[in-house]
């Protein structure tokens, strides 16, 4: 169970790393980042939330004691899907710019 979750997170982190490198390649080659950047940020915020949740699950109540680093990380990660472009906004960007779907409104 834990091993599965760890494995999945490792996978996601690796995908993020490679996607980011691809984004860098695009910048190097064409001088500007593509809209895929929004995909990375969206994935990252979700991954970070899962990661901190896993840490909290592993540590049990100890994760929630004052001064615990993971307590901070766990709560901080909740903001990841709101800051720097909320996940909803990013989904719209992905839908319209990456997938080329018609605008929502």
């Amino acid at each position: 169970m834990i091993a599965d979750r760890l494995g999945e997170l490792h996978l996601k982190a690796e995908i993020l790393r490679l996607t980011a490198l691809r984004g860098l390649t695009a910048i190097e080659k064409y001088g500007q980042p593509g809209p895929e950047g929004s995909l990375t940020k969206w994935m990252w915020s979700e991954t970070n939330q899962q990661l901190t949740q896993l840490a909290a699950d592993l540590m049990g109540p100890a994760a929630l004691t004052a001064g615990s680093r993971w307590a901070y990380e766990l709560l901080r990660a909740r903001g990841n899907s709101i800051e720097g472009g909320t996940t909803e906004v990013l989904k719209n960007i992905v839908a319209e710019r990456v997938l080329g779907l018609p605008k929502a409104r």
Partner: peptide
Amino acid sequence: ALEMTLEYVEGAQAVRGPGGILPGRF
């Protein structure tokens, strides 16, 4: 599969009219 789904959604959207499907919730 993704491309086929997009084609399908666009078809459905054309029939249903704008706002029929919210892309963000796609």
